[in-house]
């Protein structure tokens, strides 16, 4: 064990030396942010970026990040609802993926029970086809689906996730039966991308960032983005402008536990408002390539409710949720 201890000891020194954080002006707030996923993923990165921005901008004195992985965030949510009731210092990162997975997992807790605080970032979905595909635009794809939805295979992320929902919405908007959607879920982004590049499927759907470098290299053809209007910095048409009515985004936000007072809620909303405007947060968004889609308080609460209702409807229409 001696060698092992020495290793740990040295790492301790190295970490302390290299990672010496500089904390700026202290504020009063002590926050805990839960990432309902393991370290490394999108929610975890969001939580840790918030930690960085909140402390460096002096909005909170201390921020502690915890990970509660499992079942697309259902386990983290259950913990927030059951164990943190009324705790005004607790936040949880969540996103659109959670809305869908709570429904498909038949989770006993729901997002109606939490206190919505703010939406932070969003990424639009991109639909792509292999570069040598005869499909050139959204109309071609819609026509192929209308002709025979079974023969148009889609590669994307997990069943019931945002990719799947977007594919179902596209099928519906193209005028075909969404229950006939031939969607093939893949576990990792890389695996789905390989299937698209290898021409094993007709089309692929995922966040724009997953495809960006392939599109630029000319290996994939971008059919369009699922945004309501053109996105700055991305030279791409929207699906909507091509006459297929589709508007969906993969967003991330934060919620607080149930049972906190209006005043406590306002404090948290204020903190998020401040953070979203801070140069520290903007710098992180820039560095990570996340799109700012800030929205807080009542507006976010209403948005969350609408998303839940719409998602339930879509998932029922593709047969993933029995209503």
């Amino acid at each position: 064990m001696s060698r092992n201890r020495k290793g740990l000891w040295r790492s301790a020194l190295a970490v302390a030396a290299i990672a010496g954080f500089v904390t700026s002006a202290a504020a009063q707030m002590e926050l805990k942010i839960m990432a309902p996923a393991g370290p490394g993923g999108g929610w975890d990165q969001t939580a840790r970026s918030m930690q960085q921005a909140l402390t460096q901008a002096g909005i909170a004195k201390g921020v502690q990040v915890t990970n509660v992985p499992g079942a697309g965030g259902s386990i983290g949510l259950a913990q927030l609802v059951n164990n943190s009731k009324g705790d005004a210092n607790q936040l949880m990162v969540m996103g659109y993926v959670m809305v869908g997975s709570l429904l498909t997992n038949k989770s006993p807790v729901s997002l109606d029970q939490v206190t919505p605080i703010a939406r932070l970032t969003a990424e639009y979905e991109a639909i792509v086809v292999p570069a040598d595909s005869p499909i050139k635009n959204a109309q071609d794809l819609a026509a192929a689906i209308k002709a025979d939805p079974a023969k148009v295979t889609w590669a994307g992320g997990s069943a019931g996730g945002v990719d799947h929902i977007a594919a179902a919405l596209f099928t519906q908007a193209a005028g075909a039966d969404p229950t006939k959607l031939n969607y093939i879920p893949f576990s990792g982004g890389g695996e789905a991308l390989a299937a698209i590049l290898g021409g094993k499927v007709t089309a692929g759907i995922s966040g724009y960032g997953e495809f960006e470098s392939q599109i630029k290299a000319g290996k994939l053809r971008l059919i369009g983005l699922t945004s309501p209007s053109r996105v700055p910095n991305i030279d791409a048409p929207t699906i909507k402008e091509q006459g297929v009515d589709l508007d969906i985004a993969n967003w991330r936000g934060v919620v607080a536990p149930p049972g906190i007072s209006d005043e406590q809620r306002k404090q948290l909303v204020d903190a998020m408002d401040k953070m979203s405007k801070s140069k520290e947060w903007q710098a992180i968004l820039n560095q990570k390539g996340w799109m700012d889609s800030y929205m807080s308080g009542d507006a976010f609460a209403k948005f969350l409710q609408n998303e839940q209702a719409r998602t339930k409807e879509v998932l029922a229409s593709v047969g993933l949720v029995k209503s």
Binding site: A12, V15, T66, N67
Partner: peptide
């Protein structure tokens, strides 16, 4: 305690 200090404090594992 040794494990806790190294992993929870220095490496920010929860």
């Amino acid at each position: 305690i040794l494990i806790f200090v190294v992993f929870a404090k220095l490496l920010a594992l929860s």
